[in-house]
Design a protein around this nucleic acid. Sequence first.
RNA 1: GCGCCCGUAGCUCAGCCGGAUAGAGCAACGGACUUCUAAUCCGUAGGUCGCAGGUUCGAAUCCUGCCGGGCGUACCA
Length: 549
Amino acid sequence: MFENAFESARAAGDLTSEDKPAVVIETPPNEAFGDFSCNIAMTLARAERKAPLVIAEKIVKHFEAPEGFLRDARIEKPGFINLYLDGDFLCAKLGEIFSSPDDFGKNESGAGKSVHLEFVSANPTGPLHVGHGRGAALGDVLGRVLEASDFRVHREYYINDAGNQIETLAKSACARYLQDVKGDAVPFPGDGYQGEYIREIVKSSRFREGIGALEDEQALLSQAGVIAKDLILEDIKKSLSEFRVRFDEWFSESSLFTENGNKIEEAIAALEATGKLYEKDGAKWLASSAYGDEKDRVVVRDDGRPTYLASDIAYHHLKYERGFDRYINIWGADHHGYLPRVRASMGMLGHDPDKLDVLFVQFVSLRRGGEAVQMSTRAGEFEELSAVVDEVGVDAARFFFLMRSADTALEFDLDLAKEQSSENPVYYVQYAHARACSLFRQAAEEGESFDDLDEPPPGVLVLAEERQLMKNLLEWPDVVRTAAERLEPHHITFGLIALAKQFHAYYNRNRILGQGDGLTRARLCLAKCVQIVLKNGLNLLGVSAPEKM
RNA sequence: GCGCCCGUAGCUCAGCCGGAUAGAGCAACGGACUUCUAAUCCGUAGGUCGCAGGUUCGAAUCCUGCCGGGCGUACCA
């Protein structure tokens, strides 16, 4: 509409600019400034050499709005053009919610493109802790948001089941096992995993049966490592599944060495063919500094063993060869220095590094009774995800993890998350949903049949807060789109809290039932829309939307 | 030293691909339940958006430099 007005204003000689400016429509901070506003006049000011207010007038003069759409278009002081929508137009737009309730909020910004989404990928050397939980919630919800934006999402967990940490796990398990059968005199390796979970593992019947009567030290070691890893991985899968996080694929690092040839060697050979690998001090180095990394990196050690980076190069190389349109990884913030070298290696292999996005998720600290909960990974005493989930519930845990943007450190208040009161935002949103549902139940009990709710009839919903509510509802698809475009699921959480707040206020101020057929019906329609959007939003978060509380 | 993230109300945080009077929750204070769920609502109070420059008609938002906090800086993963 603005573009058309600009064109016709130019055709009429009112404007002289050649270039069509980028039209930015935004929602004003204050209701008094209308429903939408545009700054086009201000951006044109320079090129036109005229005051923004003058330009705005010329543009508004050439507006051709569809019938029944605009109530008013006003020009405000610095040069904003503010549009005031017709209330009945809003009512009619709500019809979209009813025509396909489950789909409302979806958008097509992904245009059917495929996304490879890798997240969690915690080492199978210990249980998941709250930090992993945050990554899990973020990745899972991002996946849902991307799907709602018409991306095809493949969720993958990369299992680091090769390398030193598995050897360390094997040694730790072996030592605990021997301590268990021979007494505490058996030394525990200094770099071993201290966690209590390893003692439990070696006591389990699965472990004992797997070990059997092995005496040979090497055989015992490798067998202990395999079993411990398997048991831990099962535990991880269980924790994630209970946390309502699912994966399409569990990709094993060790499979890179064994399946369909050695993918690590292939990747190294491919890099060598590009001339980007060189030898120094007996090791093979990646010339990544020429690709934005701060220094070159070792890919093959001087003893011939590949580094972790070699695995990751092979893994990402394989990802790219699988032909996705985009790749998104979610990593802990402590891995941020790792991205340049992975990007560099992909560039060297002829892949487009820009197809790879990495979300870095900052740390989680726990708070209980107003005090920080001490977490010491060195001593193996960290707060496990499953313990937190058991304590506060899946809904609260997921919601809390998504109440902050990923790049800010999260303080997780256990007391608050557990609290079933107004102070807990999860319940706040769920309660709004349950409240709406109870209205429909109540209406039915009173014998009024409102199960054919559709868009509100025109001319009835005239309150300012009703307009505001309608506008917020209609903006929901934009919230989802923004969350997908910026890879920021927390917009969903904030959008839901805002909508719930608006609905609670509206509910308290205005009676919905028993207002006469016309008004009650219209307000119920509105409440139905609220309920649908809340439900869809909670679904995106993987949080339940109870009908009763 | 270098790199990434953060610094906004007493606390926890939104807002940050430039826009109008900087928002929310908690905490504080004062109100609202014979009426649709008080797990709710209404009101009051609370701010030199870390500091200093720059770009701009306009900066919490972009750039530069400082200060403060977190994380990283391996032939570990």
